[in-house]
Computed example of a mutant assay.
Amino acid sequence: MKILRNLAIACAVTVGASSAAVAQVSSFSTPPQGSVWNTMASVIAGQARESGAMNVVVQPYGGNAQMMQAVNDQLAEFSLNDVNDVITAVQGTGEYRMAMPNLRLVARVNPFPVGLYVKESSGMTAVSDLEGRSVPSGWDAFPIARSHISAILAAGGLTWDDVKQVPVPELIRGSDDMASGRVDSAFFALGGPKVAEVDAAVGGVRYLTVEANEETLAKIQEVRPAFYFTEVEPAPVRVGVKEPMAFVTWDNVLLTGAHVSDEQVADLLAVLFDEKEAIAAAYPPLGALDLETAYKAYPGVEYHPGAAAFFEARGIAQTPAQ
């Protein structure tokens, strides 16, 4: 990793020295293509290029640990992630063996509902129906899924001991394995392009319902304190949602590295909020972008100074942590 970092820095210095006229390139680290974060980053990057504000490219990695490492080690400038995962990465707790102290928040982007989904032909409709059935486990390349599925199972009255665990490495493979019949269920965020792909391939999928009440809220917050429930209505872009239903949800955040300049951060924030209509038209879930609620405090992680200055200039006060 040090060799790669040194090569990347050396190349950047060489290119910068040889041609000052070349526009600075910022990169987004994301999970593989087909994931929601990759789609969101691609839309934001595309709008940044179209508006002429920035030259932004998207670089897929194997999973959340690798994409966080890329930002921390100055191999990427921006990323999108669950705020819980950012906090644990900064602290070096949970799935992270080493702290990543260079990660900084830029903005709260949107609520991020996640769930377990199945083939509609399975006859299952609720997470509780998975008792004795197979659920994707392991997640060596995407360890964030472990805590998310633990919370979803808890909201359905189950634990890992109540289901059959089938190891999968990451999101896309997990959905492929469900489509092929290797595992009975798959894990994915609502609105993911991969879910639509599987839906078309298997003749229909559906997300499994959970019980959203005070008891199950306490259970999911034992897994991660920033989890909460949201009610989701069916819509064409929400493949697999057959009726109004509750989802385990977290706050999705835009993050950056301490090495990134205040100007780069402010420029990307300006794209997010000044070009919101175009961004939402390209990917409707990003219509939830809201300048008034984007500057939210969270425990254990700080905002980049460029972001703090941007919100102050726009007259936005920080929302206290819940």
Rank of each mutant, 00 (worst) to 15 (best):
105 L>Q: 13
105 L>P: 12
103 L>M: 10
286 L>T: 14
237 V>N: 12
292 E>Q: 15
242 K>E: 15
196 A>I: 04
322 Q>W: 02
82 D>A: 11
72 N>M: 11
265 V>I: 07
311 F>A: 07
45 A>Q: 12
262 D>V: 07
117 Y>I: 04
1 M>V: 14
81 N>H: 09
267 D>A: 11
13 V>Y: 05
256 T>Y: 05
283 Y>E: 12
233 E>T: 07
32 P>I: 05
168 V>M: 00
59 Q>C: 12
313 A>G: 12
159 T>W: 01
147 S>K: 08
318 Q>T: 06
45 A>V: 12
156 G>C: 03
33 Q>C: 06
256 T>R: 08
153 L>Y: 05
163 V>I: 03
158 L>G: 01
98 M>L: 10
229 F>P: 01
105 L>Y: 09
216 T>R: 00
89 A>F: 14
79 S>R: 13
87 I>K: 11
75 L>N: 13
122 S>E: 01
264 Q>I: 01
298 Y>A: 12
93 T>A: 07
13 V>C: 09
231 E>Y: 08
75 L>K: 13
216 T>Y: 00
55 N>K: 14
293 T>N: 14
118 V>P: 00
19 S>R: 05
316 I>R: 15
103 L>Y: 12
293 T>S: 15
258 A>M: 11
176 D>L: 11
27 S>R: 15
146 R>H: 01
240 G>A: 06
265 V>P: 07
242 K>L: 13
264 Q>L: 05
298 Y>C: 08
259 H>K: 14
51 S>I: 05
245 M>K: 02
213 N>S: 00
8 A>P: 04
52 G>A: 08
171 L>G: 06
102 N>P: 09
108 R>T: 14
164 K>V: 03
221 Q>D: 05
153 L>H: 03
230 T>R: 00
68 M>T: 14
201 A>Q: 10
88 T>M: 04
87 I>S: 10
319 T>P: 04
266 A>W: 08
63 G>F: 11
206 R>D: 02
44 I>L: 10
304 H>N: 08
212 A>D: 02
83 V>K: 03
232 V>T: 11
261 S>P: 11
14 T>S: 12
77 E>C: 13
185 S>I: 02
101 P>G: 08
168 V>K: 01
199 D>C: 06
89 A>R: 14
291 L>H: 13
48 A>Y: 00
114 V>E: 13
223 V>Y: 02
41 A>F: 12
22 V>C: 01
189 A>M: 06
73 D>T: 15
62 G>A: 14
192 G>M: 14
322 Q>R: 08
264 Q>C: 01
296 K>P: 10
39 T>C: 10
19 S>T: 03
209 T>V: 00
204 G>T: 06
259 H>W: 12
264 Q>P: 02
309 A>W: 05
141 A>N: 05
221 Q>K: 12
116 L>Y: 07
151 A>T: 02
220 I>Q: 07
310 F>D: 10
